[in-house]
Design a binder for these strands. Structure first.
Lengths: 242, 242
DNA sequence: TTAACATTGTGTCTTAAATACACATTGTGT
DNA sequence: ACACAATGTGTATTTAAGACACAATGTTAA
């Protein structure tokens, strides 16, 4: 390498340092909701940063230069959980100056809905754990704020769009569905009025099957009409209430 | 400079090139809505990019390393319009690979509501122009998509939150308000039912004043209750319907 | 000055949805 | 066979939405 090459290299460093000043990292964080044991849960991982020792954080990663935002969130979900074909929706972007201890990182938050029982994650080997929303006091970074924002969004959407069926198995009883609504909304619902409301939306088909292995009178099993499954799996862009 | 220095420099270049590979620009774009002449309008500027010659684009800029997202959108609004103290709300982030011809730029879209009449912008000197939403066919970048997304968001919010009063002068007649709703929702409303609905929301105070200089029977002037102005100017975080 | 005009302001009826509320039925477990 | 735990169902009340018509008021122009 000649002295001239060196000068060129140095100039390049200058230029890149300037770029670096303007460099802001961009990441995606996924709030992955699950439902089990009559409780709304979120999938968290132990933070690997010293600053947040002992705290959990959402699943996230930097966005690669060759992938768009939705692709990045799908990749993270797939890599971390092995899940594919899940409901994902962008919620909000967070960009406080001090939100990441090791530099300026703006993050785009997504929420996701998965059926815990159906997909068996290798959660323990991964340091991944399901946490009840109720019990979460604080998280690494600004992830508690992100979680709360996504929970609020989920609450807003739950009565207007057929999304939460992604949290349930293919077939479910109306009791299971009502318990899920109650878990998300944080209130108790009247059984008769709830059933009337759901019937009015006309989202469900009554399979002719019945619950099994319940220690009481079994209920009918229902499933989501197939025309709504399309919307539910990947709601792109603007969507009208059904 | 020794051979060893050179090796160090080269290593630094390697490292920075790697960073550069991960470098993604981040910008903010503002959809600034205004209302005039019974028409919903948006503030646009002639694109300065060759690729988009003749097309208009939204007002936007790169986010600086020392400002958060909300601050960036306020700055852009202030710089370009001189307006301060306006309603701004983050809507969605857009990150397609090919959305910017000169590189990878992810943008965070905000919408803003301003009273055209009240603030006299130097629009002509700035190449800034108000365009009727109706007439806009395409825009530079993916700005048509961003505009449509923000319009849809505005439509969603307009009946639930007292936001659109930011588009009107301090005092307005119920006819003006109804025309604004009609412009945003793109439909005609029944006058009696509209007034009943607005009365039910209890957002307004009846000032004892009357319209002036109208070529017909003048209507009463109303204004937004002050407790809602707070919310309306800067809706931070999660907000419940009123 | 008066008549035509444009818009204000107001109420009832009907329909749809939300809420409050109670009892007989069915399958399981002991 | 009895206690248990849940299913499944209907009516009455209140609240909101939607359809719809006419008298009153101020301006303008003949």
């Amino acid at each position: 390498m000649t002295e001239n090459d060196l000068r060129l290299k140095t100039a390049e460093i200058e230029k890149i340092s300037h770029l670096d000043y303007f460099n802001i990292g961009i990441s995606v964080d996924c709030v992955i909701f699950g439902y089990d044991d009559k409780d709304l849960k979120v999938l968290l991982i132990k933070s690997d940063l010293e600053e947040f020792e002992g705290l959990y954080s959402l699943l996230g990663d930097l966005v690669r230069p060759d992938e768009d935002l939705d692709t990045a969130s799908y990749r993270i979900l797939k890599e971390r959980t092995g899940l594919d074909d899940v409901y994902l929706e962008q919620v909000h972007s967070f960009g406080s100056l001090d939100r990441h201890p090791s530099g300026r990182v703006i993050t785009v938050a997504y929420y996701s809905l998965v059926d815990i029982k159906n997909h068996r994650l290798r959660v323990d080997s991964n340091e991944l754990h399901w946490h009840s929303i109720q019990t979460i006091k604080n998280l690494a970074f600004d992830h508690k704020l992100i979680l709360d924002t996504c929970s609020a969004r989920l609450q807003e959407q739950v009565m207007d769009y057929p999304v939460i069926f992604n949290l349930l198995p293919e077939k479910f009883s109306l009791r299971e569905l009502q318990e899920l609504y109650e878990a998300i909304l944080g209130l108790e619902l009247d059984r008769r009025n709830f059933r009337k409301k759901i019937a009015l939306k006309d989202w469900l088909i009554d399979t002719e099957e019945m619950e099994e292995n319940v220690p009481h009178r079994p209920g009918k099993l229902h499933k989501l009409k197939s025309e709504y499954k399309k919307i539910a799996v990947s709601k792109q862009g603007v969507l009208n209430p059904v």
